[in-house]
């Protein structure tokens, strides 16, 4: 995906990015008893990343994320898992949840399901962002990563997709009638 040509899109996109994420977090937080939750919030947040990559190009969006999205997903999975394993310490069954009422801003009920949902949120953002980054890559003018280079990536599809670009042959689209 090339960086967007439209100046307006880029200007608006930078602002919308934050608005979309605020809404995504709102969806995440209200999800315990109302429609919403980690999955749908994560999709919203991933949409903001898609918009950024449309406006600024995939490379810059990856730069903004600073880390491999797979690790974001991994962190989310770890968080969700640890939350669900926590009851084992107290001798309770897997996935048992606990609630506390915090006397902040009136009374807010906070429970371990929220932590679990934050984990789901991160998994969805990470996986979707990874998908977009992999699929959005141009395949014509890419050089393959050197073997000692791709080993440093924990990403499944970075290497194979560009494999054809490594050889001298013309871009694959030209071959296919």
């Amino acid at each position: 995906m090339k960086a967007g040509q439209s100046y307006i899109f880029r200007a608006v996109g930078a602002v919308l990015f934050f608005l979309i994420n605020v809404f995504a977090i709102y969806l995440l937080l209200r999800g315990h008893n109302l429609p919403g939750g980690g999955f749908i919030g994560g999709l919203g947040s991933a949409l903001s990343l898609i918009m950024l990559s449309l406006a600024f190009g995939v490379e810059r969006t990856q730069g903004i994320l600073r880390t491999d999205p797979v690790r974001v997903a991994g962190a989310g999975l770890l968080l969700a898992l640890l939350t669900s394993l926590l009851p084992l310490l107290a001798g309770d069954p897997f996935l048992r949840h606990y609630h506390v009422v915090l006397p902040v801003l009136g009374k807010i009920e906070v429970g371990t399901p929220l932590l679990f949902d934050v984990g789901v949120f991160l998994v969805v953002v990470g996986v979707t962002a990874k998908l977009i980054f992999v699929l959005a890559r141009p395949n014509a003018d890419l050089t393959a990563l050197a073997p000692e280079e791709w080993r440093n990536y924990a990403a499944p599809l970075e290497e194979p997709i560009e494999k054809t670009a490594r050889s001298e042959s013309p871009a694959p689209e030209d071959d296919v009638p």
């Binding site: 690790r71 770890l78 898992l81 394993l85 069954p93 897997f94 080993r151 440093n152 924990a154």
Partner: peptide
């Protein structure tokens, strides 16, 4: 610990292992 509570371990152990191994950036 209650043996029934332990039954989650065959599922949870490989899952935790997978995630931790995934977070490691390079084969080490």
């Amino acid at each position: 610990m209650n043996p029934a509570t332990l039954m989650i371990l065959p599922v949870a152990l490989p899952l935790v292992t997978a995630v931790v191994a995934l977070m490691g950036r390079r084969p080490a």
